[in-house]
Design a protein around this nucleic acid. Structure first.
Lengths: 253, 253
DNA sequence: GAGTGGTCTAGACCACGCA
DNA sequence: GCGTGGTCTAGACCACTCC
């Protein structure tokens, strides 16, 4: 048996909420995803084809396709023309998302907390102005924070925000993530460009992160853009690599 | 003028190759992308709406939507219901792709070369078997390479491949990337899960990478899957952080 | 040749943001 | 109220893979 056996996702895909606010393709994608995660769809098994699945659920083919495409984009499924759709082998990691460190830690079962080290209103120098796409000299807010997970220092976060946010209240920063605060002001991050690297820690960093001087740090630089495409945040962070790493899932298009 | 001006992508979008093998949505996406990159579509400017664009090019709306969605996924455009589609501010980095280090260096204008340090056929221990999703004791191939860019050592690469590839010829590895060799055998990587971290270098690594002992290294662990969802490669790499870093673009869905 | 996913059309209705 | 993107339908033809 060189061919993987064909397993059909049976039964309970029929209960779709057609009137509700949740898109049908999304509901279907969730159902298939949970079937994969709890083993009802085994790694390597083939899915029912798009048309049959659509007929069975009374969905049009584009809707079924879109549901499947979501999972292909997440790296859970693989499709081949003329062959079919299969579940990817190997245990599935959590998907890549645009999250802040604050959320990452919460989701990981750690209790995040934050100490605001510095918060300063100033004017953009050339570097900051370039990253935020604002004029040199325009007002910006600099925030420097130390992030803890279960009371252990994990990361030093330095962020700059443009003019619109220079009045961000520092007391909120201690209890909420930066992205949470921005969201509360109606700003949601849509796109972020990150660059991940490494370097040695200096004296100050070593003390703050409670590591030896000269130990390796994981670093990240990021520019984040809102729904209008404007840069709303630029920052560089450094992390204790024994406590934090970046997970990425890549999908060939 | 609080509102960004509306700029329409003019003229030269009309020359679509309808009979050819390149999908229409892809051709349109490329045209829009190049218009963004060379400045004909300014950052922050609004695109023509989907329907008008479709009419003008004699394309159906789903086709136009798909072209735009490609660019949204790449982080070049941002869409808002009820408002429109806008170009993201800020200079555009290259998109994230599933590439090997070999290609990365080539694309970056560096000349990649490789020294094969070790190549060994053995049997999977528990760790390797787990990563590759094969039985403990099944044949695997271990490859250890040193990768140079312009004759400067950049990375140490250690990879394990399952049974099907234990006969990979080592002479090819010196001149080609691993993914190139796999592709030549009809295996294309579709999904990869990576974990990026940092740590200090040990003595052997320091000598090979020509850095001080105990300096910071950027590390990456990866499992790669082919079109059938099978794991075809697991490896851990370490990079000189002054010569290499990871770029990632994240898009909120 | 049969079966699969890949692309494309031409409509429809809805939800949201804004004036 | 109007214009936008978001979702959905019901078809069609094609390209590729496998037998």
């Amino acid at each position: 048996m060189s061919q993987e056996e064909v397993i059909l996702p049976l039964g309970d895909f029929a209960d779709l909420d057609r009137g509700g606010p949740i898109p049908l393709y999304f509901q279907l994608a969730q159902k298939i995803e949970s079937a994969i995660k709890d083993g009802r769809l085994a790694p390597g098994s083939r899915l029912e084809n798009e048309i049959a699945l659509g007929n069975r659920l009374s969905l049009s083919r584009p809707t079924v396709r879109r549901a499947i495409q979501e999972l292909v984009d997440k790296g859970l499924l693989v499709r081949r023309r003329g062959v079919g759709t299969q579940v990817v082998h190997g245990q599935i990691h959590r998907k890549v998302e645009l999250t802040s460190l604050h959320e990452d830690l919460s989701n990981g079962g750690k209790a995040p907390s934050t100490k605001v080290l510095e918060i300063k209103r100033s004017n953009a120098d050339q570097k900051i102005a370039g990253h935020l796409n604002v004029k040199v000299g325009s007002p910006v807010l600099m925030i420097k924070r130390l992030r803890f997970a279960d009371n252990v220092p994990v990361a030093i976060l330095e962020n700059w925000l443009p003019e619109d946010f220079v009045d961000l209240a520092d007391e909120n920063l201690a209890s909420h993530g930066l992205y949470q605060l921005l969201k509360a002001r109606g700003v949601s991050i849509k796109v972020a460009q990150q660059n991940i690297g490494a370097r040695k820690s200096n004296t100050a960093e070593s003390e703050m992160l409670n590591v030896e001087k000269g130990s390796a740090l994981l670093t990240m630089e990021r520019t984040a853009f809102d729904a209008t495409g404007k840069a709303v945040e630029w920052g560089h962070h450094c992390y204790r690599p024994d406590l934090y790493s970046f997970e990425v899932t890549l999908v060939e298009k």
